[in-house]
Simulated scan of single mutants.
Amino acid sequence: MSQEKIVETIPVGPLGIIALESSKVMGQHVNDYLVEWRNARESEHKGTIAFYGYQRDSYLLNACCPRFGTGEAKGQIKESVRGADLYLLVDVTNYSMTYTVCGHMNHMSPDDHYQDLKRIIAAVGGKAKRITVIMPYLYEGRQHRRTSRESLDCALALQELTHMGVDSIITFDAHDPRVQNAIPLKSLETVAPNYQFIKAMLHNVPDIRFDSKHMMVISPDEGGMSRAVYFANVLGLDMGMFYKRRDYTKIVNGRNPIVAHEFLGSDLEGKDILIVDDMISSGESILDVATELKRRKANRIFVAATFGIFTNGLAKFDDAYEKGLIYRLITTNLTYQTPELLTKPYYISADMSKYIALIIDTLNHDNSISALLNPVERIQNILKEYGQGHFAN
């Protein structure tokens, strides 16, 4: 969206960003972009009351969640939020943070981060004009439907947030976007970082070729088919998929164990492979898929996942890289990245801070973000810039 169109619409209210402790780094990057854009932006309306506080040195508000010795906490906002258009950033998977309970050290779980988010919303006390929660990894997103007598945690959380006064929730690559049915009268936007993946690969791998002769897109399971279909269509590539054969007679770690990965698709011998998924948890599935692809004589394997959680550490990925199983691993900075991960020779980080800043800037002016949610034009432009895909020679 052009800057001219943005500036000719009145902001919903003075912009305020509350980056919870889990998202402090991302919040700072987003704030830097917004300060730079708004200081460079010229508008004949700048002096009017509707644009009051439009250009500031920082849009980050001072908020915290101090804890008592018992581990209980409270939310505090240390400046006025009356009439503000608030954006709350939270990373519920940031396990690097700790707190003490009666002298014992605890690492913060998604439950703790979600509770802190509610505390900050409660501290706002209904004084803000509008509250938007930006929660890249959707809390309990994998517990979105019932398979037996069990809780529907994601739906409960969404309803709880909207009942507390949240107007809209923005998440990235929700495990199943249909969970928005839990809050049909409120907005839940699920954003995909497709453009950022392609941009990161073009920037970091000079000899990559996005065409059907040299590359193929693979979905590691049937649930991620739509993601792979999108990449295949936009980039003009062939597509294949694996489906997981599970043993439904057993339950291991809360799920049915995978017996084998079966492949559906055309010949992939000698082609680079792009595996796209929403998240890497332990990474076992992705590495099993990579092994199967190599068995079918695939060339370089690129793995792109929105969230890199790496619950079992990076040793398996180091080993896979050394054996030539994977060539590059791309995840976003939407969730916590360990310093160790950032030093890995095979790792590429896709920066999402500018994208989030664009979404906030556009929404603050009450403009449509539909163009930002469907980045086909931007993907075509960057392919053209690099002479790739349809634009090769």
Rank of each mutant, 00 (worst) to 15 (best):
91 D>P: 01
37 W>R: 05
44 E>I: 15
96 S>Y: 06
73 A>P: 02
42 E>N: 13
34 L>D: 00
25 V>R: 07
74 K>I: 15
44 E>V: 15
47 G>M: 08
119 R>L: 12
46 K>D: 14
81 V>I: 12
136 P>V: 05
90 V>E: 01
109 S>Y: 14
75 G>L: 06
126 G>F: 10
69 G>V: 10
137 Y>P: 01
129 K>C: 03
89 L>K: 05
103 G>Y: 07
23 S>C: 09
70 T>A: 06
58 S>N: 14
60 L>W: 11
98 T>A: 14
61 L>M: 13
43 S>C: 13
121 I>P: 00
73 A>R: 07
49 I>P: 02
127 K>G: 05
82 R>W: 12
127 K>Y: 13
119 R>T: 03
73 A>E: 07
128 A>N: 03
89 L>S: 05
116 D>G: 09
119 R>V: 03
123 A>W: 04
29 H>N: 11
94 N>T: 04
70 T>W: 09
77 I>W: 03
75 G>A: 11
32 D>T: 06
91 D>K: 02
112 D>K: 09
103 G>N: 05
112 D>S: 13
90 V>H: 01
114 Y>P: 02
37 W>P: 02
61 L>V: 12
81 V>P: 01
90 V>M: 04
116 D>P: 04
116 D>L: 10
131 I>T: 09
101 V>N: 06
118 K>S: 02
73 A>H: 07
115 Q>V: 10
83 G>D: 08
105 M>F: 08
70 T>V: 07
139 Y>E: 03
78 K>Q: 11
73 A>T: 13
48 T>R: 07
119 R>H: 08
25 V>Q: 11
51 F>E: 00
120 I>A: 00
92 V>C: 06
37 W>I: 05
38 R>S: 01
59 Y>C: 00
44 E>Q: 14
100 T>C: 11
37 W>S: 02
118 K>Y: 06
85 D>Y: 04
50 A>V: 09
99 Y>E: 09
100 T>E: 10
24 K>L: 10
107 H>N: 12
116 D>H: 13
78 K>L: 15
27 G>A: 11
108 M>T: 12
95 Y>H: 13
49 I>Y: 09
116 D>E: 14
115 Q>W: 14
102 C>I: 14
82 R>H: 12
70 T>Y: 10
55 Q>R: 14
34 L>H: 00
107 H>A: 04
31 N>K: 12
139 Y>Q: 04
90 V>P: 00
26 M>Q: 11
104 H>Q: 13
116 D>I: 08
107 H>C: 03
41 R>M: 15
31 N>L: 03
91 D>T: 04
97 M>E: 03
47 G>V: 12
90 V>Y: 01
99 Y>C: 08
70 T>D: 15
89 L>C: 08
54 Y>N: 07
23 S>I: 04
28 Q>C: 10
29 H>W: 06
36 E>T: 15
79 E>F: 14
96 S>N: 13
82 R>F: 07
24 K>P: 01
77 I>N: 02
130 R>K: 12
22 S>R: 04
65 C>F: 08
102 C>W: 15
54 Y>K: 04
63 A>L: 12
88 L>E: 03
84 A>D: 03
45 H>P: 00
111 D>H: 10
115 Q>A: 15
86 L>P: 00
71 G>Y: 08
